[in-house]
Write a protein that binds this DNA or RNA. Structure first.
Lengths: 152, 152
DNA sequence: CTTCATGTAACTTCATATGTTACGTTAAAT
DNA sequence: ATTTAACGTAACATATGAAGTTACATGAAG
C-alpha cells in the first residue's frame, strides 16, 4: 500500500521554516524532502488556503508561517490537507443489502471510528511549538542555547 | 488511496460459509462479493495456511471452517492475511538523519502505535460467533428462530 | 526588462489491491 | 477410463492516487 506522507513532509518543512527569519523558497524546502519544488507548492497551497501559511511571489518571495507555532495544531494541518483517508483498509461496499455484510461492516466501522477519534485527538493535542521543543531536545546540549535564546 | 477490503470480504464469506452445511465453492463465495473465484481462492489460501479454513479439491469440494466460530477472532484473520498495513499515511523516511524529521516522525509514530494497538485490541475481542450473533439480530424476528435453532 | 519566485496545468511514474485468463492438479461420478 | 467439478497458481491487465516532472504563465524586486 502506497502511503500518503504529506502530513509528515509538511510538518518537517514547517519546522525548518520556523528556524528561519526570511521566507523559504519551494526550492529550499524541496531539498529538505529530497523532492521537487512543484510538489512543495502543491502541498503548501492547501495550507495557504487554510490560512496557516502565506506565500509571496517574486524576488525575495517564498513561504512564511501565518501564525505562531503554538497556534497551529497537527489536526489543523491534517484538515488543511483535505483530511485524507487515515486507513488503508475498509469495507468492500458501504451500503450493502446483505445483512451479513451489514453486520461485518458495523463492527469494522466501529473499530475504525474509535481509532480515528484517537488519532485526531492526538493530532489536536500537538502544536508545532511542541514539535519544535521535541526537536530542540534532540540537539546536543551546547547547541540548544543558541536555538532557544539566539533566535526570535 | 486505494483501500484493502480483504478483511471485510473474508469475514463476509466466512459467515456465509457458517450458514451452510456443505463445503462452499469459490464460485459461490465469489458471488457474495461480486468478484471472481480466483480472488476468493487467493485470499482464502492465506486463511488455510493459518489453519482457519480447509479446502478440498475435486467434485463436492470447496471451503470449510477449520474451527468453531467462537474460536476465530478478527485479529487471527487479520494476521492470517499477512497483517497488512492499517494506515494510509506514514512518515516519508523511516530513518532520517535530520533531527527535525526525527522529532516529527516520533510524534506521528506514537499516535499511530496507539491507534494500531486500539484497533488490534478490538479485533482480538471479536470472534466470528459475535459477528454471527450481530447478523442474526438483524434478521426479522420470525426468521431468527430458524437460524438459531433450525441449524447446527 | 531581467531575474527570481509562486501558480498551475498536463503528463508520467510507481505501487499494489483487484480482476482476468489460462492451464495444471485432484477427486468424485459415470 | 473418462468426464466433470473443484482448487492451485502463474501470468498478465486494470484502476487508483500520491508523487514526480515538464512547461509555461504570473507577479514582484532590482
Amino acid at each position: 500500500m502506497k502511503l500518503d506522507s504529506r502530513l509528515s513532509s509538511v510538518l518537517h518543512v514547517l519546522l525548518h521554516m520556523a528556524e528561519k527569519e526570511t521566507p523559504a523558497t519551494s526550492e529550499i524546502l524541496s531539498r529538505y524532502l529530497g523532492t521537487n519544488p512543484v510538489v512543495v507548492r502543491r502541498t503548501m497551497a492547501s495550507l495557504r488556503e487554510a490560512g496557516l501559511v502565506r506565500s509571496e511571489r517574486g524576488r525575495g518571495g517564498g513561504w512564511t508561517l501565518a501564525r505562531q507555532l503554538s497556534a497551529i495544531t497537527l489536526r489543523q494541518i491534517y484538515e488543511a490537507l483535505g483530511a485524507p483517508a487515515l486507513f488503508a483498509f475498509g469495507n468492500r461496499n458501504d451500503r450493502p443489502d446483505c445483512l451479513v455484510e451489514q453486520a461485518v461492516n458495523a463492527r469494522i466501522e466501529g473499530a475504525m471510528e474509535e481509532a480515528e477519534a484517537l488519532l485526531l485527538a492526538r493530532f489536536e493535542a500537538v502544536t508545532l511549538a511542541d514539535l519544535q521543543a521535541d526537536f530542540r531536545a534532540r540537539l546536543p546540549v551546547h547547541l540548544q542555547e543558541i536555538h532557544v535564546h539566539g533566535r526570535a
